[in-house]
Design a protein around this nucleic acid. Structure first.
Length: 218
DNA sequence: CCAGACGTTGTT
DNA sequence: GTCTGG
DNA sequence: CCAGACGTTGTT
DNA sequence: GTCTGG
């Protein structure tokens, strides 16, 4: 592992909240001073840094008003103006205990939580942008890449985050010009486990690891 | 050329 | 900024 | 994605 | 029904 790197630790897991949740990533009190994401530094060495959830394009006039996409399709990221520049220059890894997907069943939506079978924190492939505020401050934002669901997630939903195994982290952060293109694929089938969770997860105000707890479906 | 959009998920 | 649509 | 709102006046 | 906010 290169200088400046470290694996996600248990404290990361605690501080970084459970899974992808917009409210969490935008709530500075909940995030505290935790560094939420790994990104590549200008010098090339990966560093931990806080990025805010929801990509604000560099050209944005009003970050509060315009779209702030939280997902970018890996299949089209290179040809979409909104993502192309970030895809070519600004990569990050976004730690998450897991992610939620919703299964549509006869008019209802059942949320599921997916995570690493050994409970390790996942690294999601992300892009980031830097936006210069009128007062001179920088707003750094990010989004994740999505890909087709693997065989485990597919029964629930046809899309899922792009998950990178530790051995691929360096390649991703080195940039998609090279082998990173090959990383834009669904996770291996054995890489995830999933179960139904409470509908409480639907409320962005709800927060905490208890949202990941298994419940009976329905 | 200019004007206007620029993203994803989902789909009863 | 850069792409698409007209 | 889901939850929750769904308005107007005036001002810069 | 459709839009915005999180």
């Amino acid at each position: 592992m290169p200088d400046g790197w470290r694996r996600w630790t248990e404290s990361d897991k605690v501080e970084l909240k459970g899974a992808i949740n917009v409210a969490d990533f935008n709530d500075e009190e909940k995030l505290g001073k935790a560094d939420a994401m790994v990104r590549r530094s200008p010098a090339g060495a990966p560093v931990l840094h806080l990025l805010r959830w929801g990509l604000v394009p560099h050209r944005s006039l009003n970050p509060a008003g315009g779209p702030r996409p939280i997902n970018a399709r890996s299949e089209t990221v290179l040809v979409k103006p909104a993502f192309r520049d970030a895809f070519l220059k600004r990569w990050c890894l976004i730690p998450a205990d897991g992610f939620y997907e919703w299964q549509t069943q006869e008019g209802t939506k059942q949320p599921f939580f997916f995570s690493d079978p050994q409970g390790q924190v996942l690294a999601l492939a992300g892009l980031w942008e830097s936006w210069r505020a009128p007062d001179g401050g920088l707003l750094r934002t990010c989004c994740i890449l999505t890909t087709a669901a693997n065989a485990q997630v597919a029964p629930v939903h046809d899309r899922m985050p792009l998950i990178l195994a530790p051995r691929s982290w360096a390649t991703w952060l080195a940039g998609p010009a090279g082998a990173a293109q090959a990383l834009l694929v669904p996770a291996p089938v054995a890489a995830l486990r999933g179960w139904p969770v409470s509908h409480r997860v639907n409320r962005v105000a709800e927060y905490g690891t208890d949202l990941m707890a298994p419940v009976a479906a329905g």
